[in-house]
Simulated assay, not measured.
Amino acid sequence: MPTSGIYLVADSASTAGRPLAEIVKAAVDGGITTVQLRCKDLAAAHFLDIVLGCARHTAGRAQLLVNDRVDVFLAARAAGADVQGVHIGQSDLPASLVRGLIGPDAVLGLSAATDAQIEAANRLQSSSPGTIDYLGVGAVHATPTKKDHPEPLGHAGLARAVGLSGLPVIAIGGIDAADVAPLARTGAAGVAVVRAICAAEDPRAAATNLRSLWEGTKP
């Protein structure tokens, strides 16, 4: 399970031309403890190179997850990289099969957007405990980083999803600094950001600020 708090989805299409490893290093220096690498349009070999490069910055400091590409995760692990798991979507390989491929100790996250998808995840977790570690639920807001996002949930919809889910929920979708406190109050285990760090002029400062906002909501 990702460490609760701010979760960076490092998207190769959202870095304003900067190397993804540079963004990841800055974010981890700013206190981010979970990073998911999302490289939708890259060939496997190129994506693997990025994972290996980013792992040098996260090793021993943050969990590193691979979006969608179970093959890239397995290749990175075989190459000795410090990678912790994968995050998959509803149209990817079934979570039960992915768990068998990545092993019992790797982190497995699953995207969910509807009541039906959350309830299906609850049923899977009930029948096969430990299959899924957390749900990435959204979109909270409309976001250009994912053009096929579902109808936005808003803060109230996210709170409802948290209540419905039997798994920890990471909120995602167009989230910025103003969303952190209200989303923390929904009971979400964390909030995932993309552009709020990847597109920031100073990603390290942005990460530090987001983490402070999250920590400020805790007793």
Rank of each mutant, 00 (worst) to 15 (best):
A13Y: 10
H87V: 07
K147Y: 12
L74F: 05
G154C: 08
G109I: 03
A192R: 05
L153F: 09
P104I: 12
S126P: 00
A184I: 07
V51K: 05
N67V: 12
S111N: 07
G174M: 04
L167R: 00
A207R: 01
G103L: 13
T143E: 08
A27K: 05
G100V: 09
A44F: 10
A112F: 03
T131S: 06
S212D: 15
L52N: 00
A26W: 01
I118C: 01
L8C: 06
L48E: 01
R195M: 05
G166V: 03
D92Y: 09
A159G: 09
A76V: 10
I170K: 01
P168N: 04
A184Q: 09
T143P: 07
Y7C: 00
V24I: 14
T58Q: 01
H46N: 09
S4T: 11
Q84G: 05
G216E: 09
R38L: 08
V51R: 00
L97E: 13
G89F: 03
C39L: 09
A206W: 03
S128T: 14
N209L: 14
Q63G: 14
Q36D: 03
G130C: 07
A171I: 00
I170L: 11
A59R: 12
L97F: 08
Q63C: 11
V83P: 01
L37Y: 02
H141F: 07
F47N: 01
D176S: 12
D11I: 07
G60N: 08
V193W: 05
Q90M: 11
G166Q: 13
L52E: 13
G174V: 04
A188K: 06
I175G: 00
T208Q: 10
G173L: 04
I170G: 04
A120C: 10
S96C: 15
T3Y: 12
V107D: 05
T143Y: 13
V72T: 01
T186E: 06
G216I: 07
R211L: 14
V194P: 00
G100A: 10
V35R: 08
V193E: 01
G173H: 01
A43H: 08
V169I: 04
G30A: 11
R160H: 12
L108T: 02
P144R: 13
D202R: 15
T186I: 06
V137Q: 04
W214S: 05
Q90C: 11
L42Y: 09
A13I: 12
R38H: 02
A106K: 03
S212Q: 15
V28P: 04
V191S: 05
E119T: 12
A121G: 04
A121L: 04
T34E: 06
A142K: 15
Y134S: 03
D29A: 10
T208R: 15
V137A: 05
A120H: 06
S14W: 02
I175E: 03
E119R: 14
K147N: 14
A156F: 11
K146R: 12
L213Q: 13
L135H: 03
F47M: 10
Y7E: 03
A156Q: 14
G60P: 09
L48G: 01
H149S: 13
G17C: 14
